[in-house]
């Protein structure tokens, strides 16, 4: 038989490993999400750069596909994510609120130009990514702050080729970040 101190140590070990399992599952899910958004954002930025007339449609399509993909990830893979069921609806509401506030800032209260829009949305998105990272894991913080810094750099210093810059920074950054998260 063991004494209570050893028993406490064993329970602490269990807690620690459970925490790590949840973290690793979260990372796996988040990395899929990041890669998915990365591909979409890369494509939309390329469209914006090559055919600016179609930019609006491209971004609406990206938003719909992106959110749809995340919800599908939740709905079709309920057994491997660390939170309970019924997260789908709440997730949808959160995204609705997210886009509503973004729309309010850029189109109702303010009137952002294309360049400002191209900067606003990525850093808005990355703000939540980074904030989530403060609680869930520092990989998110690193990716979020890195992409934000590069985005702002592009806004101030890159001229005509800004959408192309964003395709690589934002799209490429998300893909690389997502793949990197799998290795942790």
């Amino acid at each position: 038989m063991i004494d209570s101190r050893q028993a406490s140590a064993a329970l602490a070990d269990i807690d620690d490993i459970v925490q790590r399992v949840k973290q690793s599952q979260l990372y796996e899910l988040a990395s899929l999400a990041a890669v998915w958004w990365g591909v979409l954002v890369f494509a939309a930025n390329l469209v914006t750069w090559l055919w600016p007339i179609y930019a609006v449609y491209a971004w609406v399509a990206v938003d719909v596909l992106g959110v749809g993909g995340l919800i599908a990830l939740r709905v079709f893979d309920p057994k491997s994510h660390p939170f309970g069921a019924g997260v789908g609806i709440r997730l949808f509401l959160i995204f609705a609120l997210f886009f509503a506030f973004g729309y309010l800032v850029t189109n109702v209260v303010g009137h952002f130009g294309p360049r400002q829009l191209g900067t606003f949305w990525p850093i808005y998105f990355m703000l939540f990514y980074t904030l989530a990272g403060l609680w869930f894991g520092y990989a998110f913080v690193a990716i979020g702050l890195g992409i934000t810094a590069l985005t702002l750099f592009g806004f101030f210093y890159i001229g005509e080729a800004f959408p192309l810059w964003m395709a690589f920074v934002n799209g490429g950054g998300l893909i690389l970040g997502g793949l990197w998260m799998r290795r942790i």
């Binding site: 064993a10 070990d13 269990i14 490993i17 459970v18 790590r20 399992v21 949840k22 057994k79 491997s80």
Partner: peptide
């Protein structure tokens, strides 16, 4: 103990 703790943290049919 660690192995069992990790596997037990997963939903019923999921493995590692």
């Amino acid at each position: 103990l660690k192995i069992m703790a990790a596997l037990n943290a997963l939903p019923a049919t999921a493995g590692l």
